[in-house]
Design a protein around this nucleic acid. Structure first.
Lengths: 158, 158
DNA sequence: GTAAAGAGTACCAAAACAGTCCTCTTTAGG
DNA sequence: CCTAAAGAGGACTGTTTTGGTACTCTTTAC
C-alpha cells in the first residue's frame, strides 16, 4: 500500500532525536520516555538500527546507544533498509507467477524498476542532517493532500 | 512496506494489455484468460478502474471494457490512485499519536512530504503508453538492484 | 424471455504488523 | 564477587490488511 511501516516511522523519530545530540548516549528507556513510545518498541528499533551500524550500542550498566556516524552520512534510504523487513522495491519481482509468460509483463516490470530507481533516489537524497535542520517553509498550517482530521494538536508547535 | 499491492500490479497488467488495442472491447473473462488471472479478480480491478474513468464499461450482453482515454493520458499515478485503498503517501500523518507534541516530529513530517512529492512525481511521469513501448534493454536476465540506467527524464535526483 | 455481461456488496482465509515478553549476556559500582 | 541496570536475541500473540471469492441485482442483444 505504498506506505512505510510504523517501525520505520519510529526509526526516523528516534534517529532524528539522537541526531540533535550526536555524542550523547541515550538509553532505550530515555528515548521511549522522551518520544512517548513504548520501551519494548524503541528497543526493537534500536536493535535493528544497530545491526546496520546506524547506531552503536554500549552494553552493561550505564550503557545505551549513540549515532553510528554523523547525521549527514545517514540517509532515509538506509533507515528504510534497516527497518523494513522486505528488500526495497515497489513490486515483488513477480518472476515466479505464471504471469511472467505473457510477453507484456516483462516490459511492465522493466518500467517498474525504472520507477524504483527514482523512488530510491529520493530516499537516498534526504539525510538525517536535513531532517534535523529547521524547515524553510512553515510547517504547521500546510495540510496534507487528504488531511481530513482537523485535530488542533498541531497548533502548539510553532 | 513500501510495496504496491497485488491489485495495483494486476491493474497495470490489465491496462497495459488493453492499451495494445485501445479500441477493442474486452470482457473480464477474456482478460482473465489472456493474463492468467482469476475472473473475479480481474472483475474487481476493472470495476475499480471504471470508477476513476480509466476504463469505460459497456453493460449488457456482449458488454465489456475499453480504455477510458488514450494510453498517453494514463499515468501510473492514476492507476495507483484508483486501486490502492489508502490515499497516496509514504507516511500516515501520525496525527493522532502523542508523538506529535514533540517538536522535531513536525520537521520530520515536512521532510517526508518532500519525499512524497518526488515519489509521486516519478509515478506521474510514467504513462501507459510508455509501459507498452518495447524496452530498449533486454529484460529477462537482469537482476533487480543492479540496473540504474538513469533516463534523462527521470533523473531528477542530485 | 433469456442468457451473457457488468455493478455492488459482503465475506472469509491467509499473511503481515505491531507490540510485548522472556531469558541471556555484559558491565559499573559497592 | 554480587547485584542491578542496560542491551541482545528470540518467540509469541492479537489485530489489521490483503487477496480472492461468492452472491445477488441490473442491463441489454437477440
Amino acid at each position: 500500500m505504498l506506505r512505510i511501516s510504523k517501525i520505520t516511522d519510529y526509526g526516523t523519530l528516534v534517529l532524528t532525536h539522537m541526531a540533535s545530540m550526536p555524542e550523547h548516549l541515550f538509553s532505550a528507556s530515555d528515548l521511549a520516555a522522551t518520544l512517548g513510545l513504548g520501551v519494548p518498541t524503541v528497543s526493537k528499533v534500536l536493535k535493528l538500527l544497530g545491526h546496520h551500524g546506524l547506531v552503536l550500542s554500549v552494553r552493561g550498566l550505564h550503557g545505551g546507544y549513540r549515532l553510528g556516524r554523523s547525521p549527514d552520512q545517514i540517509s532515509v534510504a538506509q533507515i528504510v533498509d534497516a527497518l523494513e523487513d522486505k528488500p526495497f522495491g515497489l513490486t515483488e519481482c513477480s518472476a515466479n507467477s505464471g504471469v511472467c509468460s505473457i510477453e507484456t509483463s516483462c516490459r511492465i516490470r522493466a518500467n517498474w524498476q525504472r520507477i524504483n530507481v527514482v523512488v530510491r533516489g529520493a530516499l537516498e537524497d534526504v539525510t538525517l542532517a536535513e531532517m534535523v535542520r529547521p524547515v524553510p517553509i512553515e510547517c504547521v498550517i500546510k495540510p496534507r493532500l487528504a488531511d481530513a482530521e482537523p485535530t488542533a494538536r498541531l497548533g502548539r508547535q510553532k
